[in-house]
Protein backbone atom coordinates (compact mmCIF):
# COMPACT_ATOMS: atom_id res chain seq x y z
CA UNK A 1 0.00 0.00 0.00
CA UNK A 2 1.33 3.43 -0.92
CA UNK A 3 0.80 6.07 1.74
CA UNK A 4 -0.71 9.32 0.52
CA UNK A 5 -0.96 11.25 3.78
CA UNK A 6 0.59 14.37 2.28
CA UNK A 7 0.57 15.73 -1.27
CA UNK A 8 2.82 18.78 -1.38
CA UNK A 9 2.05 21.47 -3.97
CA UNK A 10 5.11 22.82 -5.77
CA UNK A 11 4.59 25.73 -8.20
CA UNK A 12 5.83 24.55 -11.59
CA UNK A 13 7.68 27.75 -12.48
CA UNK A 14 9.74 28.02 -9.30
CA UNK A 15 13.20 26.39 -9.68
CA UNK A 16 14.11 26.90 -6.02
CA UNK A 17 11.07 25.03 -4.75
CA UNK A 18 11.45 22.35 -7.43
CA UNK A 19 15.07 21.84 -6.38
CA UNK A 20 14.20 21.37 -2.71
CA UNK A 21 10.90 19.53 -3.10
CA UNK A 22 12.34 16.14 -2.19
CA UNK A 23 13.85 17.03 1.17
CA UNK A 24 10.72 17.47 3.27
CA UNK A 25 9.50 13.88 3.30
CA UNK A 26 6.07 14.38 1.69
CA UNK A 27 4.49 11.13 0.54
CA UNK A 28 3.60 12.73 -2.81
CA UNK A 29 5.07 15.76 -4.56
CA UNK A 30 2.68 17.55 -6.90
CA UNK A 31 4.28 19.85 -9.45
CA UNK A 32 1.71 22.36 -10.58
CA UNK A 33 1.31 23.66 -14.11
CA UNK A 34 -2.15 25.04 -13.44
CA UNK A 35 -3.27 27.72 -10.98
CA UNK A 36 0.15 28.64 -9.58
CA UNK A 37 1.49 29.49 -13.06
CA UNK A 38 0.49 32.70 -14.86
CA UNK A 39 -0.84 32.39 -18.41
CA UNK A 40 2.31 33.96 -19.90
CA UNK A 41 4.58 31.46 -18.15
CA UNK A 42 2.78 28.21 -18.98
CA UNK A 43 5.40 27.22 -21.58
CA UNK A 44 8.32 28.02 -19.27
CA UNK A 45 6.80 26.02 -16.39
CA UNK A 46 6.21 23.05 -18.71
CA UNK A 47 9.88 23.12 -19.76
CA UNK A 48 10.98 23.43 -16.14
CA UNK A 49 8.90 20.58 -14.69
CA UNK A 50 9.74 18.36 -17.67
CA UNK A 51 13.44 19.09 -17.29
CA UNK A 52 13.34 18.47 -13.51
CA UNK A 53 11.57 15.12 -13.91
CA UNK A 54 14.05 14.08 -16.61
CA UNK A 55 16.98 14.84 -14.30
CA UNK A 56 16.19 14.81 -10.57
CA UNK A 57 15.39 11.83 -8.36
CA UNK A 58 12.65 12.45 -5.81
CA UNK A 59 12.31 8.88 -4.60
CA UNK A 60 10.72 7.54 -2.51
CA UNK A 61 8.04 10.22 -3.05
CA UNK A 62 5.26 9.65 -5.53
CA UNK A 63 5.52 12.18 -8.37
CA UNK A 64 2.32 13.89 -9.45
CA UNK A 65 1.93 16.66 -12.05
CA UNK A 66 -1.18 18.81 -12.16
CA UNK A 67 -1.86 19.75 -15.76
CA UNK A 68 -4.18 22.42 -17.09
CA UNK A 69 -7.62 21.15 -17.97
CA UNK A 70 -8.08 20.04 -21.56
CA UNK A 71 -10.69 22.70 -22.34
CA UNK A 72 -8.12 25.45 -21.58
CA UNK A 73 -6.23 24.52 -24.75
CA UNK A 74 -3.11 23.92 -22.63
CA UNK A 75 -3.81 20.47 -21.24
CA UNK A 76 -2.81 18.40 -24.27
CA UNK A 77 0.44 20.37 -24.67
CA UNK A 78 1.15 19.69 -20.98
CA UNK A 79 0.52 15.97 -21.50
CA UNK A 80 2.79 15.83 -24.60
CA UNK A 81 5.70 16.93 -22.41
CA UNK A 82 4.89 15.49 -19.02
CA UNK A 83 3.77 11.95 -19.95
CA UNK A 84 7.16 11.51 -21.68
CA UNK A 85 8.94 12.57 -18.46
CA UNK A 86 7.09 9.68 -16.78
CA UNK A 87 5.66 10.94 -13.49
CA UNK A 88 3.72 8.41 -11.43
CA UNK A 89 0.46 10.31 -11.73
CA UNK A 90 -1.18 13.02 -13.85
CA UNK A 91 -3.61 15.11 -11.82
CA UNK A 92 -6.55 16.42 -13.77
CA UNK A 93 -8.07 19.64 -12.36
CA UNK A 94 -11.70 20.78 -12.50
CA UNK A 95 -13.17 17.35 -13.16
CA UNK A 96 -16.88 17.75 -13.78
CA UNK A 97 -17.79 14.31 -15.09
CA UNK A 98 -16.43 10.86 -15.90
CA UNK A 99 -16.04 11.97 -19.52
CA UNK A 100 -13.31 14.46 -18.50
CA UNK A 101 -11.23 11.59 -17.13
CA UNK A 102 -11.94 9.43 -20.18
CA UNK A 103 -10.90 12.25 -22.56
CA UNK A 104 -7.68 12.83 -20.65
CA UNK A 105 -6.94 9.12 -20.50
CA UNK A 106 -7.36 8.87 -24.29
CA UNK A 107 -4.66 11.52 -24.78
CA UNK A 108 -2.35 9.87 -22.25
CA UNK A 109 -2.75 6.51 -23.96
CA UNK A 110 -2.05 8.02 -27.39
CA UNK A 111 1.15 9.62 -26.10
CA UNK A 112 2.23 6.42 -24.33
CA UNK A 113 1.81 4.56 -27.63
CA UNK A 114 3.70 7.18 -29.64
CA UNK A 115 6.51 7.33 -27.08
CA UNK A 116 6.86 3.58 -26.53
CA UNK A 117 5.89 3.88 -22.87
CA UNK A 118 4.04 0.82 -21.45
CA UNK A 119 0.32 1.47 -21.91
CA UNK A 120 -1.37 2.13 -18.58
CA UNK A 121 1.84 2.93 -16.70
CA UNK A 122 0.86 6.58 -16.18
CA UNK A 123 -1.52 6.86 -13.25
CA UNK A 124 -4.21 9.51 -12.93
CA UNK A 125 -6.06 11.35 -10.23
CA UNK A 126 -9.01 13.67 -10.60
CA UNK A 127 -9.62 16.82 -8.59
CA UNK A 128 -13.25 17.69 -8.06
CA UNK A 129 -13.83 21.40 -7.67
CA UNK A 130 -17.50 22.13 -8.41
CA UNK A 131 -21.01 21.27 -7.25
CA UNK A 132 -21.55 19.31 -10.48
CA UNK A 133 -18.30 17.41 -9.98
CA UNK A 134 -19.22 16.48 -6.41
CA UNK A 135 -22.57 15.07 -7.55
CA UNK A 136 -20.74 13.05 -10.21
CA UNK A 137 -18.01 11.82 -7.83
CA UNK A 138 -19.16 8.15 -7.84
CA UNK A 139 -18.96 7.93 -11.67
CA UNK A 140 -15.73 9.92 -11.78
CA UNK A 141 -14.07 7.62 -9.23
CA UNK A 142 -14.87 4.57 -11.34
CA UNK A 143 -14.14 6.10 -14.74
CA UNK A 144 -10.62 4.74 -15.30
CA UNK A 145 -8.40 1.95 -14.04
CA UNK A 146 -5.58 4.48 -14.00
CA UNK A 147 -7.15 6.48 -11.18
CA UNK A 148 -5.28 6.20 -7.90
CA UNK A 149 -7.49 8.72 -6.14
CA UNK A 150 -9.83 11.66 -6.27
CA UNK A 151 -9.29 14.95 -4.49
CA UNK A 152 -11.38 17.85 -3.29
CA UNK A 153 -10.40 21.31 -4.51
CA UNK A 154 -12.25 23.55 -2.07
CA UNK A 155 -11.61 27.10 -3.27
CA UNK A 156 -13.45 26.74 -6.58
CA UNK A 157 -16.04 24.49 -4.94
CA UNK A 158 -17.11 26.98 -2.26
CA UNK A 159 -17.25 29.73 -4.89
CA UNK A 160 -19.55 27.51 -6.94
CA UNK A 161 -21.72 26.96 -3.84
CA UNK A 162 -21.88 30.74 -3.31
CA UNK A 163 -20.28 30.48 0.11
CA UNK A 164 -16.79 30.83 1.59
CA UNK A 165 -14.47 28.61 3.60
CA UNK A 166 -15.13 28.69 7.32
CA UNK A 167 -15.33 25.91 9.90
CA UNK A 168 -15.78 23.08 7.41
CA UNK A 169 -19.58 23.04 7.46
CA UNK A 170 -19.52 24.22 3.84
CA UNK A 171 -17.40 21.20 2.82
CA UNK A 172 -19.21 18.48 4.77
CA UNK A 173 -21.31 17.21 1.86
CA UNK A 174 -18.47 17.32 -0.68
CA UNK A 175 -16.08 15.54 1.66
CA UNK A 176 -18.65 12.86 2.43
CA UNK A 177 -19.38 12.31 -1.26
CA UNK A 178 -15.73 12.24 -2.27
CA UNK A 179 -14.47 9.90 0.42
CA UNK A 180 -17.40 7.57 -0.11
CA UNK A 181 -17.03 7.58 -3.90
CA UNK A 182 -13.30 6.93 -3.60
CA UNK A 183 -13.67 4.04 -1.18
CA UNK A 184 -16.46 2.50 -3.24
CA UNK A 185 -14.08 2.52 -6.20
CA UNK A 186 -11.19 1.17 -4.10
CA UNK A 187 -9.04 4.27 -4.53
CA UNK A 188 -7.69 7.04 -2.29
CA UNK A 189 -9.42 10.23 -1.21
CA UNK A 190 -7.33 13.41 -0.78
CA UNK A 191 -8.60 16.44 1.05
CA UNK A 192 -8.12 20.04 0.02
CA UNK A 193 -5.39 22.46 1.14
CA UNK A 194 -5.48 24.49 4.35
CA UNK A 195 -4.23 27.87 3.21
CA UNK A 196 -3.50 29.63 6.52
CA UNK A 197 -0.03 28.13 6.99
CA UNK A 198 0.68 30.02 10.22
CA UNK A 199 -2.40 28.52 11.94
CA UNK A 200 -1.22 25.05 12.97
CA UNK A 201 -4.09 24.61 15.40
CA UNK A 202 -6.68 25.22 12.69
CA UNK A 203 -4.79 22.99 10.29
CA UNK A 204 -4.68 20.12 12.77
CA UNK A 205 -8.36 20.52 13.66
CA UNK A 206 -9.27 20.23 9.96
CA UNK A 207 -6.85 17.34 9.44
CA UNK A 208 -8.33 15.47 12.41
CA UNK A 209 -11.80 15.72 10.89
CA UNK A 210 -10.76 14.44 7.45
CA UNK A 211 -8.78 11.57 9.01
CA UNK A 212 -11.86 10.54 11.00
CA UNK A 213 -13.95 10.72 7.82
CA UNK A 214 -11.69 8.21 6.10
CA UNK A 215 -9.53 10.40 3.85
CA UNK A 216 -6.11 9.00 2.91
CA UNK A 217 -4.45 12.37 3.35
CA UNK A 218 -4.45 16.01 2.49
CA UNK A 219 -2.88 18.40 0.04
CA UNK A 220 -0.32 20.68 1.69
CA UNK A 221 1.02 24.00 0.44
CA UNK A 222 3.87 24.46 2.88
CA UNK A 223 6.51 21.95 4.01
CA UNK A 224 5.84 22.82 7.65
CA UNK A 225 2.42 21.13 7.34
CA UNK A 226 3.99 17.76 6.51
CA UNK A 227 5.32 16.52 9.87
CA UNK A 228 2.20 17.44 11.89
CA UNK A 229 0.05 15.59 9.37
CA UNK A 230 2.27 12.51 9.42
CA UNK A 231 2.20 12.53 13.22
CA UNK A 232 -1.58 12.79 13.17
CA UNK A 233 -1.89 9.79 10.85
CA UNK A 234 0.61 7.75 12.86
CA UNK A 235 -1.20 5.13 14.93
CA UNK A 236 -0.62 5.11 18.71
CA UNK A 237 1.72 2.54 20.29
CA UNK A 238 -1.30 0.96 21.98
CA UNK A 239 -3.14 0.57 18.66
CA UNK A 240 -0.02 -0.81 16.97
CA UNK A 241 0.39 -3.38 19.77
CA UNK A 242 -3.24 -4.43 19.44
CA UNK A 243 -2.95 -4.76 15.64
CA UNK A 244 0.24 -6.80 16.03
CA UNK A 245 -1.51 -9.19 18.43
CA UNK A 246 -4.42 -9.57 16.03
CA UNK A 247 -2.16 -10.34 13.07
CA UNK A 248 -0.14 -12.76 15.20
CA UNK A 249 -3.35 -14.59 16.12
CA UNK A 250 -4.34 -14.68 12.42
CA UNK A 251 -0.96 -16.12 11.43
CA UNK A 252 -1.19 -18.75 14.19
CA UNK A 253 -4.69 -19.76 13.07
CA UNK A 254 -3.57 -19.93 9.43
CA UNK A 255 -0.54 -22.04 10.39
CA UNK A 256 -2.84 -24.49 12.17
CA UNK A 257 -5.16 -24.54 9.17
CA UNK A 258 -7.93 -23.13 11.32
CA UNK A 259 -10.48 -20.92 9.59
CA UNK A 260 -11.31 -19.04 12.77
CA UNK A 261 -8.89 -16.91 14.78
CA UNK A 262 -9.50 -15.60 18.26
CA UNK A 263 -7.75 -13.29 20.67
CA UNK A 264 -8.41 -13.23 24.43
CA UNK A 265 -11.39 -15.49 23.88
CA UNK A 266 -13.00 -13.23 21.25
CA UNK A 267 -13.36 -14.21 17.61
CA UNK A 268 -11.54 -11.89 15.21
CA UNK A 269 -13.85 -10.63 12.47
CA UNK A 270 -12.62 -9.89 8.95
CA UNK A 271 -13.11 -6.08 9.20
CA UNK A 272 -10.95 -6.12 12.34
CA UNK A 273 -8.19 -7.87 10.38
CA UNK A 274 -8.53 -5.40 7.49
CA UNK A 275 -8.29 -2.44 9.89
CA UNK A 276 -5.30 -3.94 11.67
CA UNK A 277 -3.47 -4.42 8.40
CA UNK A 278 -4.19 -0.84 7.34
CA UNK A 279 -3.04 0.46 10.71
CA UNK A 280 0.26 -1.46 10.53
CA UNK A 281 0.82 -0.18 7.00
CA UNK A 282 0.16 3.38 8.20
CA UNK A 283 2.70 2.79 10.95
CA UNK A 284 5.27 1.77 8.35
CA UNK A 285 5.13 -1.86 9.50
CA UNK A 286 3.79 -3.42 6.28
CA UNK A 287 5.83 -6.58 6.80
CA UNK A 288 3.86 -7.28 10.00
CA UNK A 289 0.57 -6.97 8.13
CA UNK A 290 1.08 -10.32 6.36
CA UNK A 291 -1.43 -13.08 7.12
CA UNK A 292 0.98 -15.97 6.52
Amino acid sequence: MRLRRTMMFVPGNNPGMIKDAGIYGADCIMFDLEDSVSVNEKDAARFLVYSALMTLDYSPAEIVVRINDLSSGLGVADLEAIVRARPDVIRLPKTEAAQDVIDCEREIERIEKEAGIPIGSTGMMAAIESAEGVLNAPEIAKSSKRLIGIALGAEDYVTDLKTTRSDGTELAFARGMIVNAARAAGIDALDTVYSDVSNEEGFLAEATIIKKMGFSGKSVINPRQIDPLHRLFKPSDKDIEKARNIMEAIREANAKGSGVASLNGKMIDKPVVTRSKYLLELAGLAEEAEEE
Binding site: P15, D43, L48, Y50, S51, A52, L56
Partner: peptide, 17 residues
Protein backbone atom coordinates in the same frame (compact mmCIF):
# COMPACT_ATOMS: atom_id res chain seq x y z
CA UNK B 1 22.56 29.42 -8.70
CA UNK B 2 20.37 27.36 -11.04
CA UNK B 3 20.72 23.59 -11.37
CA UNK B 4 21.57 22.25 -14.83
CA UNK B 5 17.98 21.16 -15.39
CA UNK B 6 16.79 24.73 -14.77
CA UNK B 7 19.47 26.13 -17.10
CA UNK B 8 18.29 23.73 -19.82
CA UNK B 9 14.63 24.53 -19.25
CA UNK B 10 15.10 28.31 -19.29
CA UNK B 11 17.33 28.14 -22.38
CA UNK B 12 14.82 25.99 -24.22
CA UNK B 13 11.90 28.24 -23.23
CA UNK B 14 13.73 31.42 -24.28
CA UNK B 15 14.89 29.92 -27.59
CA UNK B 16 11.41 28.69 -28.48
CA UNK B 17 9.92 32.05 -27.68
Amino acid sequence: GALDCAVKARTAAAAYR
